[in-house]
Amino acid sequence: MTVILLLFILGLGIYTLFTKDLLHSVIALSAISLLSAMLFYILHAPDVAITEAAVGAGVSTIIFVWIIRHTDRKESDS
């Protein structure tokens, strides 16, 4: 189970790095946070899981979306 979750996290991380649409990468980042929250719960660290779900999936996503709203959504090819 942990291996499957880690593979998903790895795949989403690679997608986050290489996608051109920044909003997509923010959503992928928040999915990574949710998956790692599940991982922490499986590894018997529910405290960390709560924090990861609330901070990673909630607050940091809001901050990233706010930043994208005030800058450009698409990454420019330079």
Partner: peptide
């Protein structure tokens, strides 16, 4: 709830506080 029962169940001030912040948002 997470904040108040932090001494009994998983959670505590920081975790509960962040969840409260999500609720406020």
């Amino acid at each position: 709830y997470v904040m108040l029962y932090g001494h009994l169940s998983p959670g505590g001030g920081f975790q509960g506080g962040v969840v409260v912040a999500s609720g406020i948002v």
